[in-house]
Design a protein around this nucleic acid. Structure first.
Lengths: 163, 163
DNA sequence: GCAGAATTTGAAACATTATAACATTTCCAG
DNA sequence: CTGGAAATGTTATAATGTTTCAAATTCTGC
């Protein structure tokens, strides 16, 4: 590797968030989709770190906002955000994280650190290509790929259990 | 593709099951693990088709056996079977299926048909290799891969919604 | 602007999946 | 045949996700 990816090094995370939010606004405008206050707030909460957040964690944060939300509110917002490529669901964690490639068509690959919980989203065309190939060798028409790798991030290989 | 994989063509499924069970017995013996009646029965139920089965489906089948089981019984059996490489959990479905490569060390890749529900487990070394490479380029040490592809199996590309 | 349609949100109940905690039974080594 | 480990039983509860219908908001054609 050349330089460590964002989640693995200190960075001004507020910049991540505001970038994600302004990207989201642009994308929704382009798609004629309504990024309502709830949806935007959920996106912001999801982005509060590089660790995936459970739906009920989002719900709790909304409650502490004073917003008296029920589960469907959160799931609906998350559905919307997924539909527009702004968040991903991590199936192996039942949790959600901000998409770092919003706007681009991509097949996400997620590196999930079992020690610190941070997740890095990658786009690996060579992997997608091999997947597509392996599937089509069986006559299978791939539509949607879930690719989640659990392991140890560079930081946690050295000093476990920080942030 | 040359010939269709097992789940995608008519076959004597009883043979799948008895093969899986006898393999399981051999593997457990080799590992000094106890394939108790419950565990064996759960494995058999999981293998009753090539479609993944939910834990509560297994539970229901056990009940109709006359066995009055509670959720922990099933989850414990499933944990055991997973630990010994006899079943896989499909994260995107919250369901379990028999491992078709029991005994071999492998990284499963699952082709999940959204029409008929059948799942084919593949071993694709080229995919695993690309995954490992992509991860290590980020300094990430991969331990465990979840790779699930949703799409259409060969049969359902032609005539949807059979068995 | 305004009536009606469509979308979004609120709210209550419920369904599904999974685990915790502790008691009891079964198995096996010595 | 007995003491300890492993497996199972049992009850309760936690965590995750959905259905349904009502109310509010926003958009669209006029």
């Amino acid at each position: 590797m050349s330089a460590r990816a964002i989640p693995y090094r200190p960075h001004n995370h507020d910049a991540c968030v505001s970038q994600a939010l302004s990207d989201a606004r642009a994308i929704c405008q382009r798609q004629n989709a309504r990024l309502t206050p709830i949806r935007e707030r959920v996106l912001e909460l999801i982005w509060q770190s590089h660790k995936p957040l459970g739906a009920y964690d989002v719900l709790a944060e909304l409650s502490s906002d004073g917003h008296n939300a029920a589960p469907p509110t959160v799931y609906r917002a998350l559905d919307f955000l997924q539909q527009h490529g702004l968040v991903h669901r991590i199936a192996s964690l039942n949790a959600f994280m901000g998409c770092t490639h919003a706007g681009e068509t991509h097949t996400g690959m997620f590196l999930i650190c079992r020690a610190c919980g941070n997740v890095l989203e990658l786009t690996a065309p060579s992997v997608s290509e091999e997947v597509r190939k392996a599937a089509s060798e069986e006559g299978f028409q791939a539509e949607n790929t879930t690719l989640e790798i659990a392991g140890l991030c560079p930081r946690c290989q050295v000093e476990p259990d920080h942030d």
